[in-house]
Amino acid sequence: MGFSKNGLYNLTGNKAENITKVKIETGKGIGSLAEDKDGNIWFVADQHFLYTYNGEKIIEHKKTKNNKSPVVFKIFKDSDNRLWFVGFGGAYRLENGRFVNVTKNGPW
């Protein structure tokens, strides 16, 4: 897996296939990338939209009334293999498919 301003690429042998070609705006590219414990690739594209690639398809994660998330600038993985999403709106951690807002008081 590789990325550039033109998208996310699946590298196989000597061939690089742009798997985001029809999903993201060319030139704004991938800003941050992390792999979760299940092997899914989480990435930020077009400056703040959040996506997951599971090896077959790309899924855009949108805010919902019951599952709020930040406007993501950066994704981190901690030593416990948990994903953290930081951006406008603060820091969030992904737990059981939901985004949990983490403030200075936790939950840690």
Rank of each mutant, 00 (worst) to 15 (best):
N66G: 06
E25T: 15
I24V: 10
S69E: 11
N81S: 14
L33D: 02
F76M: 11
V72E: 07
F76W: 09
K37D: 07
D38E: 15
K23W: 05
L8C: 10
G39C: 13
N10Q: 15
I30A: 04
N10I: 10
F43K: 12
K57L: 09
G55E: 01
G7A: 02
S32R: 00
D38K: 15
N40V: 10
E35A: 09
N54F: 05
N14F: 01
D38P: 07
S79M: 02
I58E: 02
K57P: 01
W42T: 14
E17H: 14
E17A: 12
L50A: 10
D46R: 15
V22W: 05
E56W: 05
F76D: 07
A45Q: 12
N54S: 08
Y9W: 15
Q47Y: 14
I19A: 10
G7E: 00
D80S: 13
D78C: 06
G39H: 12
F73G: 01
F73I: 00
A45S: 13
N81T: 12
N14V: 01
A16E: 04
D46Y: 07
H48N: 09
W42Q: 09
E25N: 14
V72P: 03
G31D: 07
E17S: 14
E56F: 11
K77G: 00
T12C: 03
I24H: 04
A16W: 03
F76T: 07
G27A: 09
I59R: 07
A45N: 11
D46N: 15
Q47A: 13
K62Y: 02
G29S: 10
E60W: 11
S4D: 03
D36E: 13
I24E: 03
K37P: 06
I41L: 15
K77H: 01
Q47R: 15
K15I: 07
Y9S: 09
F76C: 06
D38G: 09
G29A: 12
K62C: 00
K68E: 10
G29V: 06
L33H: 03
T26W: 04
S4A: 03
A16D: 02
K77N: 01
D80P: 01
K68L: 14
D78T: 07
A16V: 04
Y51E: 02
L8A: 08
K74M: 11
K23Q: 14
I58F: 02
D36T: 14
K37I: 13
D80E: 06
V72T: 13
E56Y: 11
T20I: 13
V71G: 02
N81Y: 09
K21V: 06
D80A: 13
I30P: 02
A34T: 07
Y9I: 08
K68R: 14
I59L: 06
S69P: 04
N18I: 12
L8E: 05
F76L: 12
K77V: 00
V44P: 01
K63Y: 00
W42M: 13
F49S: 13
K77L: 00
K5C: 03
I75E: 00
